[in-house]
Simulated assay, not measured.
Amino acid sequence: MSRKARRKEEEKGAGSASITSFLYGTEETAKAESKTTAKEKETTQMPRAEEVTKEVSKTATPAITTGIEDEVLKHIMSRGSITKDELMAWAKTRGYKVADILRAIEALTGKGRIKKRLNDKGNLIYVYVK
């Protein structure tokens, strides 16, 4: 079929489509649906591993964070105030992840248990609030 003939057929098809054609179904939609492969159908039915791990991590994180929050708070209480670098070095020796420590710090500042300040050298310090 030549290009001109294809264009004419496409123009005829486009001109004859009504606004309500989606209600009754057309051959085009049937063709598009039949092109879906078995692989695409499997992926829509089975949850992805990434989604499953996200769900698991959402439920597991709060319990871990509260334990870390307590330990971070106890350490800051014992020192009175501590720089961020010192706190991260302490966390590294304990085997904590940086992200967990930062979440704990944000939670503690949100609760009003500690405050963030800058010292004379411009370093970030965490101060225990009595």
Rank of each mutant, 00 (worst) to 15 (best):
I125C: 01
G67S: 11
G80H: 06
T66I: 14
G15E: 14
A30D: 05
T61F: 05
A49R: 13
G110W: 03
T36E: 15
V98L: 04
P62Y: 10
H75C: 02
E10I: 08
A38H: 03
M77S: 12
K12S: 09
E10V: 12
K31C: 04
G110I: 09
S34Q: 09
A17L: 14
R3A: 11
E42F: 11
I64G: 07
R103L: 11
V129A: 08
E42I: 15
L23N: 15
T26H: 01
E42R: 12
P47K: 15
K8V: 09
A30N: 06
Y24P: 01
H75R: 13
T109R: 15
E27H: 05
M88Q: 10
K111F: 05
P62R: 08
V98D: 06
V127W: 11
L73P: 02
E33L: 13
A91G: 09
A99N: 10
E69W: 02
A5M: 12
A91D: 00
W90T: 01
T59M: 06
E10D: 03
T26F: 03
L73C: 08
L87I: 07
E55D: 04
V52C: 01
H75W: 03
E86K: 10
K116W: 03
S16W: 04
E27P: 01
I76A: 01
R103A: 09
V129I: 13
K4V: 13
H75P: 00
T43H: 04
K31L: 13
A30M: 12
T44W: 07
I68M: 06
T61L: 06
I114Y: 01
K12D: 08
T65L: 14
T93S: 13
T109L: 03
P62E: 06
S2Y: 08
S16H: 09
